[in-house]
Design a protein around this nucleic acid. Structure first.
Lengths: 338, 338
DNA sequence: CTGAAAGCGCTTACAG
DNA sequence: CTGAAAGCGCTTACAG
């Protein structure tokens, strides 16, 4: 059973293909009776529009590419969910690829756009190599590239992110408010904008509060569980141990706590620990993790909406370039007075 | 700067569009010198093939839809990574949607295929409603629908899965081998094939070993952390507590352990606990979780390869219908002798 | 080995 | 309000 085409519908309804097309995409310009006849014919034939044909004709792919650094990172799932909802509502499909992947295979990112495979892309990886970023920025399609969560410092792409500085300051103040004065930080990757931003904000806030900050209290990590474990070993080896640790990600905090526990240190009894992101698991961790919550679903939805606006009405000058979404403090059991 | 077309390349190379097309897709049939001229022209014009046009002409979308029950479940990430790799290597894109989504929006799954939006789909959700399954099975495109991880009992779709029964038996024997004779099970969702299969295998294996199984030792769960917490409360309330618990998923095991810990029960001192799946976090959990490892990346790769084989050579009778991938026991610290 | 020509299934000025 | 016709950018028998 072959799928039927506009032609088939037109034949059955006894109208032209133009009329069928109009009835489907812009019914108000068609007379009531014709509309009804076409509707019947569509039902009778089981007609489904052919996306490839429409895409070719309209010069639009009706899909958006989402680029992740790593598909296996659970941090992104809620963001994808948010993106997916908004896109689906507008009849757009969501394509997924990993930046790692694209890099390995030598494929150029911009090809997705030049290719007519996607109308725009949402990049969740601020760590693209410089030459890749330059190529994207120079492309005629650059307006259709949007960064979410992470971003690229020197480029002018539209972006969505959370309050990284504010979140960090809230975290430090939570620990300070509990009575901690020796506060350490496990950073994200040093070459990552989020890692950098949160670290800078951390250093500034400690200075603002007039707190001491020994160099060894800044431990370099990379957002992973493994890095948290290593940092725990550093902490254990310190002569003057901080009583609280602010981690640049929840995974880092979990790794840190896990390793401490193996060495019989208790959280928060021996040290208060908090994370950033408030991923799903934070609540179920032992102990449940105090964290800075980002609304990841909303980040995804906002990113998708901003991008679609640019696709639908290109060259509009009054489109938003950057949106910063609020974070909030979620207090659980991994932090306590010293 | 408009992207150039085959026409442009043909003009520059002084050949017909047919020749350019052939040079690109099947170079061996073109003479050496022509090939060189075309290659130069492609470089000069910066030509990129237009996927929409090729898709329309070849009646193929060059993309595959992956359907998840829930984008936010970290269990799926490695599977997606595996699928994505294989697809990218063959020039296919990966579309993602959630079954929940599709259901809510009233969209029919089969539309993706009828639509020319995708050439096939990989379904990671065995819990589709009966009428949806029937619609899929009846479709002319049914051969291009493949289930992975989960499957539908009464339908004849090709599928990829892990050794669920064997894995369960290995788990029970690991606990039995440690000396446990009172072994409980927290099940997956009762209406889920994996939950059912693992539960049945559990019951059978206990019978084979001649072990007692009190009805209350089968606790109904649903793969989530929350269900694990609830089961922990059941366990705590029991008069005759099992000394070991086999959980149908790692998340279940983590929730179980987390709740026990809140009530000052230690794992494995008071009870041995093991999971199924060996998700990334199992290794970092406190205590590190003994589990049955599924190679999720390989499940994804295998699924993608099987599906592509069906897309490329339809109607082949000798294509594999089902593949069962091996599991293995990973012993960590959540299990010990009673 | 190469080219002329048809056609994939739509949409959209244009004319009436 | 409706239809005839062109055309989006490719691929592929067919003929030479």
């Amino acid at each position: 059973m072959k799928t039927s085409t506009l032609q088939d519908v037109a034949r059955v309804a006894n109208v032209s293909t133009a009329t069928v097309s109009r009835t489907l995409s812009n019914p108000v310009v068609v007379s009531e009776s014709t509309r009804r006849r076409v509707a019947d014919a569509v039902k009778a034939t089981g007609y489904r529009i052919n996306h490839a044909a429409r895409n070719l004709r309209t010069q639009r792919a009706h899909s958006v590419l989402v680029l992740l650094p790593d598909l296996a990172n659970p941090f992104f799932s809620a963001i994808l969910e948010g993106i997916s909802r908004v896109l689906a509502r507008q009849g757009y499909s969501m394509l997924i690829a990993s930046t790692q992947h694209v890099h390995d295979s030598g494929e150029r990112l911009i090809d997705y756009l030049d290719d007519a495979r996607a109308d725009g892309m949402i990049v969740l990886d601020g760590g693209l190599e410089t030459d890749v970023v330059e190529m994207l920025a120079a492309a005629s399609q650059a307006e259709r590239i949007l960064f979410a969560c992470e971003w690229v410092e020197d480029a002018n792409f539209p972006s969505v992110r959370c309050q990284n500085r504010t979140g960090t300051r809230i975290a430090v103040n939570h620990l300070y408010g509990l009575g901690h004065t020796k506060i350490a930080h496990i950073t994200g990757p040093i070459d990552n904008v989020l890692g950098q931003t949160r670290k800078e904000a951390f250093v500034e806030e400690l200075a603002d509060l007039g707190l001491e900050l020994k160099p060894e209290w800044i431990m370099t990590g990379d957002f992973t569980l493994a890095a948290g474990c290593l940092a725990a070993q550093e902490w254990i080896a310190m002569n003057d141990r901080p009583t609280a640790v602010f981690c640049a990600s929840d995974q880092l905090a979990m790794g840190f706590i896990a390793e401490l526990s193996r060495h019989d240190f208790k959280v928060p009894d021996h040290v208060s620990v908090m994370g950033f992101d408030d991923i799903d698991l934070a609540e179920q961790f032992i102990p449940p993790l105090t964290s800075i919550r980002q609304d990841r679903m909303m980040i995804g939805e906002t990113a998708a909406k901003m991008l679609l606006a640019r696709i639908v009405t290109p060259n509009e000058e009054n489109l938003e370039r950057a949106t910063v979404l609020p974070v909030s403090l979620v207090i659980r059991e991994s932090t306590s007075p010293p």
